[in-house]
Computed example of a mutant assay.
Amino acid sequence: MQGMLEACQLCPRGCRVNRTKGEKGYCRQTSEVMIARAALHLWEEPCLTGENGSGTLFFSGCTLGCVYCQNRSIATSKVGKVISITRLVEIFFELKAQGAHNINLVTGTHFIPQIVEALQLAKDKGLELPIVYNTSGYEKVESLQLLRGYVDIYLPDLKYKDEIFSTRYSYAKDYFEYASKAIAEMVSQVGMPTFDEGTGLMKKGVMVRHLCLPGAAKDTKAILRYLYQTYGDTIYMSIMNQFTPICDLQAYPEINRRLTEREYNHLIDYALDLGIEQAFIQEGETAKESFIPEFDLQGV
């Protein structure tokens, strides 16, 4: 699999750089695995965090690069530490020892071959925790197929349906084309959601996240409608109101504000009118910088 990095086409950007020789493409990463944080995370959906938290690893670099990214320091590879595959496996077990309910791999698209190698080694050593693949949704089906049998829970975003938004905010005109096919592949791999009867924790399945953007209600409705009409109760959804304009968004004044309570409630009402029941919503002051973790190399 490492040969895939010699002319890398793991993500839709298709840079074809030789990452094994230190070349960097859109993701700003070579073939060396870099992570910025590995710790118990309590800010995911309740069925993932449970009482102890999700064992979350934040990889440095990103294949999408949204203008409003809350994790900009790691997405742009300004923060992170290079680690070996052996160390990655050790981190899995350290998180397990801390009580993690699962291993949550955040933004690992550009490291899929290395992740597969690490997961195989971990399984050989007895790791049995559910593996969560947490992604922007901007994925190639061919790359996701490498994860078949290794990932139990897929946690993709579906950020946009309209290419006007995906082009303006994420420089990816083809975002929905790839993300929709990626979600179909994820569902085909893991099937219907299953939960532990005692704890309520998700053991297997797909949960699609959508971050509601200010002024983009029409696109959010199109996404909710698409997901429900396509998958019904085959997936869970997470409809999020936590958009926080912490970056310099002067060039994007239409989203340089938080979502209002009225806007969000309108979208939730729309989801209910569609018949969506398997969904998580956010309440309270979720749109705060305090909900963004410190990328201080904890656990690395």
Rank of each mutant, 00 (worst) to 15 (best):
M1I: 10
G3I: 04
L5G: 07
C8S: 13
C8W: 10
C8I: 07
R16G: 02
R16V: 10
N18F: 04
T20P: 00
E23P: 02
G25H: 08
R28S: 10
E32A: 12
V33T: 11
I35T: 08
A36H: 04
R37A: 01
L40V: 09
L40C: 05
L42E: 08
L42Q: 07
E44H: 09
T49F: 06
G55N: 07
F58E: 03
F59W: 03
S60V: 07
C62P: 10
S73V: 14
I74N: 05
I74L: 10
A75Q: 09
V79M: 04
G80A: 12
I83W: 06
E90V: 00
F92Q: 07
F92G: 00
E94G: 02
Q98T: 05
G99V: 13
V106F: 08
V106P: 01
G108Y: 04
H110Q: 15
H110K: 03
I112S: 03
P113G: 10
I115E: 00
Q120P: 00
A122E: 04
G126Q: 13
Y133Q: 07
Y133N: 06
N134T: 04
N134I: 08
E139M: 09
E142V: 06
S143Q: 08
L144K: 12
L144Y: 09
L146I: 08
L146F: 12
R148G: 01
Y150V: 02
I153D: 01
L158D: 01
E163R: 12
T167R: 14
T167E: 13
Y169E: 06
S170A: 15
S170T: 15
A172Y: 09
Y175T: 03
F176V: 02
E177R: 14
A182E: 03
I183S: 08
V190S: 07
G191M: 10
M192T: 13
P193K: 13
D196N: 15
T199S: 15
T199H: 09
G200N: 08
M202L: 12
V206N: 04
R209F: 12
P214Q: 07
A216T: 11
K221R: 15
K221I: 07
L224E: 01
L224A: 05
R225V: 00
L227D: 06
Q229G: 04
I235F: 08
M237E: 09
S238M: 09
I239L: 15
Q242W: 13
T244Q: 11
C247A: 14
C247E: 14
Q250I: 13
Q250A: 13
E254S: 14
R258E: 12
E261D: 15
R262Q: 15
E263A: 13
Y264N: 01
N265Y: 04
H266C: 08
L267E: 06
Y270E: 01
L272W: 03
L272I: 11
L272R: 14
D273Q: 13
A279N: 01
F280C: 11
I281A: 07
Q282T: 09
A287M: 06
E289T: 14
E289Q: 04
F291S: 02
F295G: 01
L297K: 05
V300D: 00
V300F: 00
